[in-house]
Design a protein around this nucleic acid. Structure first.
Length: 567
RNA sequence: GGUCCCGUGGCUUAGCCAGGAUAUAGCAUCGGGCUUCUAACCCGAGGGUCAAGGGUUCAAAUCCCUUCGGGAUCGCCA
């Protein structure tokens, strides 16, 4: 709804400015505490108009002509600012639309097909608290983009032939597989042991190299040993992802691009444009004209491919299947992803949009699967659910155990997802148990609680025979500040989705959801619903609570957080 | 050493790309509020040289340069 309002504001300001014989593309529109929207156009046009911004703002404001039926209300100038408020129709229309569109409200304004890759952690162990930052950013982006209207397919790119996997397959042949453990954890156990073994006996590295050569040549027994190792790890990883409400539509494997011939074909294409040279037996690409001092190795001296080589083929394939490609990658991929894009560009292929997130480290230093220095996501989820269970038990002791467990699961995941997604991806963080398990913050559970509260009011009203969703309503009765603020907050949902989708910033949704919950809670404290003065007022306030329930549920869904009806 | 990201009240953090109206929230601290729709809530208070210095501009948390601090990365790992 806000997007429509903003569009109208843009249009009337453009017309007003044009009518003064001026012209600008930058209206300087911004959300403001002084109005629903504010324009700084007078600053931009002052020199062109040879007039000071304050007087110009007044002239522009006077030249504004409002069309019939617009959503724009009061227009005032304060100094050089033009402040524009929405009118009553904006409020009323928002209420009607939310109830009509329900879960669809606030979205559906974009189109196109997007391939979104995220997580793609090496299948050499379980996801740790760093990996899930990738998963949560990626999954939230998927939800944002889908809500915006895109057709999004998510992919987990499975590395099933790198050095790490060769080590895992070797490790399994050496130490066996402990089937009593969750499979990804069992893989990590032997992987860590194998790495220690290789450090103690460096001559054994040749066994790894030969495995890698065999797999690339297509040796069936070796391929099977790799596949088995990968399948174990991926099975466990998928369980963890599912626990966090993270889903992938497909799991393309790196080896597929070797076997299809796509890798050798793309190497041929790069050679054909004359960018390659042989350096110490390895095939390298010169990207100096793209600003990369160092060349990029795409083939080892023993002829085997590297991650980058296979990734080039993967992106070529993706580019043929979507309008946009988006990759969520850790900060360690900054350089390599730049080189990847440059290489794709050089051979005339589409380039992906890269979302980089900075690392999560431990107080004692960076995490490492190889050295066994990491906190598994499963452990965090176990701890948080345990903590959440204690919280539910404290608040709802009379409820059955099943209820408490269910709420603990939802609240625990909600707390974890919210905590991670609320921080901008470009900030590096240090994992802290005390903070991770703190439920006192206004986070996921705060928003979930607001939703449950809305549900509860409706439920109670229904029990008392006071709630009839089909009853005609009159939104003009919503005149309290907290009511109007709540409606306006809900109206701006589309704008938040739009910004978040365009800038690929999932944290914007987290902030919005918290503000929405806050608006609802303020309304709840200030205005009686079931005990409203008269029937008409009760009906519209119940409808408003219903609207809040709908938008809170949508916001939570966009964050991948469950919206419980009771907690 | 080169390159990239980050540095905002005691702690966590928004805003920075597209410079402008008293810098955003949360946690913690202090004070107030449950006979009323779930208090996982609400209201209020204190607390900030926006790392430091310089520059551009009518105007800088935001743009440019330098320095400091933290993170990432610098060919045959991914």
């Amino acid at each position: 709804m806000f997007l429509e309002f903003k569009k109208q504001v843009t249009s009337i300001l453009r017309d007003a400015i044009a009518s003064l014989g001026l012209q600008t593309d930058d209206l300087g529109l911004e959300a403001s505490q002084h109005a629903d929207i504010a324009s700084k156009a007078a600053f931009r046009l002052a020199s062109q108009a040879r007039q000071n911004p304050k007087e110009l703002a007044e002239r522009i404001s006077e030249a504004i002509i409002l069309p019939e039926d617009s959503l724009i209300g009061k227009i005032t100038t304060v100094g050089p600012y033009i402040n524009i408020d929405a009118n009553r129709k904006y409020i009323d229309e928002t209420v009607f639309r939310i109830r009509q569109e329900e879960a669809g409200f606030g979205g559906g304004f974009c189109q196109g097909r997007i391939l979104l890759e995220h997580t793609s952690a090496n299948p050499n162990g379980p996801l740790h608290v760093g990996h899930i930052r990738n998963s949560i950013i990626g999954d939230t982006l998927m939800r944002v983009l889908r809500r915006a209207g895109y057709d999004v397919e998510t992919q987990y790119y499975v590395n099933d032939m790198g050095r790490q996997i060769a080590i895992v397959s070797w490790a399994l042949s050496l130490f066996g597989f402990d089937s009593s453990r969750k499979p990804d954890h069992a893989i990590a156990d032997v992987y860590i042991k194998a790495n220690a073994e290789l450090i103690a006996n460096p001559e054994k590295v040749s066994e790894i190299d030969s495995r890698m050569q065999l797999v690339e040549k297509g040796d069936e027994a070796t391929i099977k040993s790799f596949d088995d190792a990968v399948a174990f790890a991926i099975k466990g990883i998928r369980e963890t992802l599912q626990r966090m409400n993270v889903t992938h539509d497909s799991f393309p494997h790196e080896s597929g691009f070797i076997r299809s011939g796509a890798v050798s074909r793309i190497v041929g294409e790069i050679k054909a444009i004359g960018r390659t040279e042989i350096d110490n037996g390895a095939l390298v690409v010169d990207l100096s004209d793209y600003g990369f001092e160092k060349t990029l190795v795409i083939q080892r001296s023993d002829g085997t491919s590297l991650y980058t080589t296979r990734d080039l083929a993967y992106h070529e394939w993706k580019g043929e299947r979507a309008d946009r490609m988006i990759d969520v990658l850790g900060a360690d991929h900054k350089l390599i992803s730049g080189q990847l894009k440059a290489t794709l560009n050089a051979i005339g292929k589409r380039e992906p949009e890269i979302v980089i997130f900075e690392f999560v480290s431990l107080p004692e230093g960076s995490m490492s699967t190889r050295r066994g220095k990491f906190i598994p996501a499963d452990e965090l989820l176990d701890q948080i659910e345990k903590q959440a269970y204690a919280e539910v038990d404290k608040r709802r002791p009379e409820m059955p155990d099943e209820f408490k467990k269910e709420v603990a699961r939802n609240v625990g995941i909600g707390a974890v997802r919210y905590d991670i997604v609320k921080v901008s991806p470009e900030k590096s963080t240090v994992f802290n148990w005390k903070e991770a398990l703190d439920f006192e913050k206004q986070g996921g559970p705060f928003i979930q609680y607001s939703h449950a509260r809305a549900c509860n009011i409706l439920k109670k009203a229904e029990e008392e025979g006071l709630w009839d969703p089909s009853r005609p309503i009159d939104p003009s009765l919503l005149v309290e500040d907290t009511e109007v603020d709540l409606v306006k907050k809900m109206a701006s949902f589309d704008s938040v989705i739009d910004t978040s989708a365009r800038e690929l910033k999932p944290n914007a949704i987290a902030i919005y959801a918290r503000e929405l919950a806050e608006s609802f809670n303020q309304f709840y404290r200030f205005v009686p619903v079931i005990n409203a003065e008269d029937e008409e007022l009760r009906a519209i306030r119940l409808a408003l609570v219903d609207c809040a329930r709908i938008v809170l549920a949508s916001a939570l869904d966009t964050l991948g957080i469950a919206a419980p009806e009771s907690m």
